[in-house]
């Protein structure tokens, strides 16, 4: 270990501490309002926390080298003719491979598994979602209710969304920012996703309670959004009955 290596290591350590202090609990996302959101947010936080030392390592070497190894005046001397360094290359491969497997691939695989864990369960509620230019239709087959641009679901219940688009329409994507779920609406296909909301709330209080089209669908793509209300089971049943009565008339 020589002086340069030690200084860079110290710089790296300091920058890493500062970096971690800045990113821990940074809360870039909207508040997580579903089970699925927690899994996504944990994965995000994990990648941020473990990405910081990688970032600070490269920055430390870069900054130190620019300060320490820039030439003085019009010096014409060459640097040392080092072409490679077997130990460093081996060390680098070992670390990048270990990091890739342990820090990136392993949590990715487990996160994916926990995200799809609920998919085998029997859902408490089925909502059929149709995206068309430029509105959302929500059909509740068990409740005999159909709404336009208004999604109401009960809290703490597993909801299965079956998403599609009319045959002659274009692609859309069913996205609820507060739940971190997103699945495309494809003409002629039925795609599906699940969510279990953890808190009641409504679009009127928080714009993240919305269904937003996330796949470019032409003119009014940016405005293709529906409101979302998460309500208690009782309220949901009442709402559904009321709507069914209105529609029956």
């Amino acid at each position: 270990m020589n002086r340069d290596t030690i200084t860079v290591a110290a710089l790296w350590a300091v920058l890493t501490v500062i970096g971690e202090a800045l990113v821990i609990g940074i809360g870039l996302f909207p508040a997580p309002l579903a089970e699925e959101a927690k899994i996504v947010d944990e994965a995000f936080e994990h990648l941020v926390i473990l990405g910081v030392p990688v970032f600070t390592f490269v920055v430390s070497v870069l900054v130190y080298a620019v300060i320490r190894f820039r030439r003085r005046g019009a010096e014409l001397e060459d640097g040392p003719p080092v072409r490679t360094h077997g130990k460093w290359v081996a060390f680098w491969f070992a670390w990048t491979t270990a990091l890739t497997v342990a820090v990136i691939i392993h949590p990715g695989v487990t996160g994916l598994r926990s995200l799809t864990a609920s998919h085998g369960e029997d859902p408490d509620l089925l909502v059929k979602v149709t995206g068309q230019r430029w509105l959302w239709t929500f059909e509740y087959p068990e409740q005999n209710v159909t709404t336009i641009n208004e999604l109401v679901i009960p809290v703490d219940k597993l909801v299965r969304f079956e998403v599609t688009a009319p045959d002659r329409d274009v692609l859309h994507s069913f996205w609820i920012p507060a739940f971190r779920i997103k699945i495309d609406a494809v003409p002629g296909l039925v795609t599906h996703t699940y969510a279990r909301a953890t808190r009641v709330g409504a679009f009127e209080e928080d714009v993240d309670y919305r269904v937003q089209c996330a796949e470019l669908c032409g003119l009014a793509h940016g405005k293709m959004a529906a409101t979302l209300s998460v309500v208690s089971q009782e309220e949901f049943e009442q709402w559904a009955k009321g709507r069914a009565r209105v529609e029956a008339r």
Binding site: E75, W92, T96
Partner: peptide
């Protein structure tokens, strides 16, 4: 990210102890 990491190794290894013309 593993082969991409090699590109970074090369970049950092090259400037290390160089006589950088900025």
């Amino acid at each position: 990210s593993i082969p991409t990491g090699v590109v970074f190794l090369s970049a950092l290894g090259t400037i290390w102890r160089g006589r950088m013309w900025l």
